[in-house]
Amino acid sequence: MTISSRHILNTALLVFLGLIPFITDWMGDSFYTGLVARILILAIAALSLNLLIGYGGMVSFGHAAYIGVGAYCVGIGAFHAFEDGIDWMLNGYVQLSAALLGSALIALIIGAISLRTRGVYFIMITMAFSQMLYFSAVGVETYGADDGLTIYLRSDMLGLIDLNDEKSLYYLIFASLLVVLYLMHRLVESPFGNVIRGTRSNEARMRAIGFSPYKYRLTAFVIAGTIAGYAGFLMANLNDFVSPDMMHWTRSGDLIIMIVLGGMASLFGPLYGALAFLMLEELLSSIPLTIGGLHVGEYWQLIFGPLLILIVLFARNGIDSFLPQPRKSS
């Protein structure tokens, strides 16, 4: 493998992200560690969604639902440990297993039904399922209904890692991102990944050479859902809070924006997209400009909306198209 300037750029980004807690320590403002941690978690979720959208051509519009499922596994566990003193429910490994199994199972059910449809119908049915989960979370009075659930006790990882320490939590998230990046790299390059990419570009041809796309699509759907569930596990521990709002369809829209911003069908695209999305939000909402008594930053979406349209219209591959391109070898 030759080392291209793109590799150097990606590595530099990862090294920078790895140093964030020390940089913010040095700046004396730990707010940014939390912000970057949130970005990294969303990047993990966006990476998993990119397996479906970017590589598989399946525009799932309900991916935030799995984040919610994972997060609620932590929230509900912490709730019973705090209110009823059921200690095993605070066990991080129990919560993690519940988050992974729960999101995998739900992705399996949703995927099995949704993947029978195509195109717009697929977009709509995945969104409908996520709205169902959203409304079921709104309906459960015990767990806070639409007010959400404050988590008073973070997952107890039995001394292996202390999630109450912001730095340890950050590095758990960072390490998770690295693992997911590696996993995606291996997955996409594997024979399985080739089938997924093949069904995206020409389904009829894949059928003709003897593959049944449904099984492969469903497997990808479950993998993506499970990783998003894991992101939810991290998110609940970082925010100390879960609410139905995490599953709202607009949150799923945000994830898609990140992928489109970063560039589809590129490994690092969703990471760049998540960074760009939240940085833009942070940046645009703090524009120090006042016109006629109106604070421009307060209306940042007025700028972000048209910007999104311009990106879709003129920069189809998002940030990825501005980065040094890998030489086409095959």
Binding site: I53, V59, F61, G119, V120, I123, G253, I256, I257, V260, L294, Y299, W300, Q301, L302, F304, G305, P306, L307, L308, I309, I311, V312, L313, R316
Partner: peptide
């Protein structure tokens, strides 16, 4: 493709909501 349309019209929603608030 549909994804581009979803994104661009999502951008329109943000624009209209903020413009209305303004």
């Amino acid at each position: 493709d549909h994804l581009d349309q979803v994104m661009a019209t999502f951008g329109l929603i943000l624009f209209f909501n903020e413009a209305t608030r303004l």
